[in-house]
Amino acid sequence: MSEVTSKAQRTIKLKTRRALIAYGFLVIPLLFFLCIRIYPTLYAFSLSFRAHNASGFTLDNYSTLFHDHVFWRSVLNTLLYVIITVPLQMAFGLLIALGIEKIHHFRWFYRVIYFLPYITSIVAVSWVWRLMFDENTGVLNHVLAWFHIAPQGWLADPSEALLSVSIVMIWQAMGFSMLIFMAGIQAIPRQLYEAAQIDGSSSWKMFWRITFPLLNPTLVFLAVTGVISALQTFTQIQNLTAGGGQTAGGPLNSTSSMVVYMFNNAFTNFNMEYASAVTVTLFILILIVTLIQLKIINRSFDY
């Protein structure tokens, strides 16, 4: 009897020891996560309820935010970025993926070409685009001139600037969509196409009845990641519109996104408290969007 209990004790000990070791290893990332993510997040929350250069609880930051037309412009712009870039970068990615699927030689070459923008430095690429967009000397207006089209303002024109920034974002993200779509397409069983061919379906019909529905999980994944990254857009805007004494988001706030507006408040106006309020609003917005998307993502797919 006593031998049994001592054995049991030993196994428990071994179990606890194992668990302890596991926890020990978990502690490292956990601590890292607490210090680098959770603590700053909570700190930003508390900061947003403080007045600038004063102590005490206040809701002033939020009430100012509510009446701040530049903020609302940034919210609108952020939503526009999502609406414009996400569907288009997915559509182009799908088109390219389908195209590459059709060819048999040098497939790797095309894959590399279309994926290249995604792995190039956003900063470097934004500056190249900035020079291409230049009103007076840019290559884009030069090309337009061949077709006798009047030169456009691109980034300099408030009504075109947001679209110009979106073009860069789409161009850069579509390579990623392409890669994911290619993986998705390859996962579709060949037999389905063979069966459809025997039944005499056109390739148009096959796309809409087989490829597209079976790509649903891929579409959802790309939509979720695309929306989140579009909501957080910053680098492209900063590098396309800031510099030489101009803060990012111009001209006339036409390209300012929520993150850009937060950044300008925090680091050009040094108003960390107000910037925190912007961040909290963005946090809530992303949270809502993600919750909705998770609902969709968890829907099961019947094939």
Binding site: G153, A156, D157, P158, G245, Q246, T247, G250, P251, L252, T268, N269
Partner: peptide
């Protein structure tokens, strides 16, 4: 009092005149 804001204000005013 706030060089960055003062500069942005006049730059925006000029943009409004020239672009809009």
């Amino acid at each position: 009092v706030d060089e960055a804001k003062e500069r942005t204000a006049i730059a925006n005013a000029v943009d409004k005149i020239l672009l809009k």
